[in-house]
Design a protein around this nucleic acid. Structure first.
Lengths: 240, 240
DNA sequence: ATTGGTTCGGTGGTCCGACCATTGGACCAT
DNA sequence: ATGGTCCAATGGTCGGACCACCGAACCAAT
């Protein structure tokens, strides 16, 4: 049976999301400047030819991203996303501005190289037998692709580190991996490298050897960083 | 004139935010388990005795936090926040579960100690004359408190690093600093330490000395980490 | 001239009831 | 067992109304 791995789930956008994206783009590109006051919801609704509820739904999302400030009785104001922007905004920026995609991914990978060893070290110390069992189960699971395994392995390590911050940072990375991981895992050599990593890190965690865990993590992070960055440069579209 | 520095701005909560918090609490505490299906919006509205629009506003926020998944024509499902939670969720968790507050703040500070030097190093290399001028202006501004200066100084350093990821991570930290910074800056000795830091880091950026910038940042991060963690332990409420 | 109260128009927050769009399941025909 | 059709449930959008709040303008008292 054909697998259709190439077919991404289609995203039929909701109207409110279109509103969100219109304003989002305006803010990121700077057309809507920080401090500027947006038209009233009723006016926006009329201009964009949608209902006020729909506008409000879109604005609500932008407020969650800390890109605007909605003041009851006053109005809606654009914030300076350089001061208030959070990590979720990075994903939105990649969606809007494809120009920046490559450099952002490279930055992410560098960052992972910095914090990965720290997280692995913590995990080696704090891991429970249950974490170890879960890890073994994932590694041996024949149903999973290497990419899926890799994401789960990292997730278990983050859980084992018993550090909420690392866990949520990793979730952020994983959302990118799900989207762009193929850049790395399409190559059999890289898949082999990951399988080896999974086994090695498992042993390090089993022995609770923090130093070894950190080194193993650091090495594989550096390796993947180099590979992906090289890939990005290869497929980079030429700019005049 | 009295300053009222003790008076935090009052938060008159919106109804939709109460809905959000009710469900948020349920999810974080585990009462609402991952995968579980929530009652239909119409039923929720009836149970909570608010309008369906209000329920939708609350659900929309939770969706932004990636805590629930809203499926058109199907229903609303609880996600596993350990897999999907992002940094913004940490702030929500601190708001809901005060028990965890101290350990989370400590974690944040440790983390800052790890990435701070990296960011300072990048800033020393990539800073422009404009960054330097802004930095000087902030440091010399007599109107600002040391806490306000410190936040602005870090923000300029993050901007100078020319790294979107660091910038947005720092924004996240700053939101905590605005709330809990007094734990550190109430003490005159710590304020002096920060003033010295501002001057030193300015000089390092001026000379574009990456190594020195990293060391200066690392030292002050470690210092503040130790101080705040000691403070947290002092004010910790005794448990049973 | 400054301070404090009042009014009023504009704006976001909530409510109501209706209809549209999509989904999942039941049922049926092949 | 497969695919088609229909239906009830559910989220998305709509229009219109009213409430809560803010800011500016104005007024009143000192």
């Amino acid at each position: 049976m054909a697998t259709l791995t190439f077919a991404r789930p289609l995203t039929r956008s909701k109207l409110s999301e279109e509103i969100e994206n219109i304003l989002l783009k305006g803010i990121i590109t700077g057309e809507l400047r920080a401090g500027e006051k947006l038209p009233a919801e009723r006016d926006l609704a009329h201009e964009l030819d949608v209902n006020r509820s729909t506008v409000r739904a879109g604005l609500s999302k932008l407020e969650s991203l800390d890109l605007i400030e909605i003041r009851h009785g006053d109005g809606v104001y654009v914030k300076d996303f350089r001061e208030s922007g959070n990590l979720e905004l990075i994903r939105a920026m990649v969606r809007i501005d494809e120009q920046q995609r490559d450099s952002i991914i490279a930055t992410l990978l560098e960052f992972r190289t910095i914090i990965g060893p720290q997280m692995a070290s913590l995990a080696a110390v704090n891991r429970t037998d249950e974490h170890l069992a879960n890890l073994e189960e994932v590694i041996k699971d024949k149903e999973l692709s290497v990419l899926e395994k890799d994401i789960k392995v990292h997730h278990i390590i983050a859980l084992a580190s018993a550090n909420t911050l690392y866990l949520f940072l990793l979730n952020f990375f994983n959302k990118f991996m799900t989207e762009f991981g193929h850049l790395y895992f399409d190559c059999p050599k890289n898949r082999e490298r990951s399988v080896r990593f999974h086994e090695d890190i498992y042993q390090a965690l089993r022995k609770q050897d923090a130093g070894k865990a950190a080194k193993i993590m650091g090495d594989v992070m550096k390796y993947s960083e180099d590979v992906v960055i090289a890939n990005l440069q290869n497929v980079k579209k030429p700019r005049r």
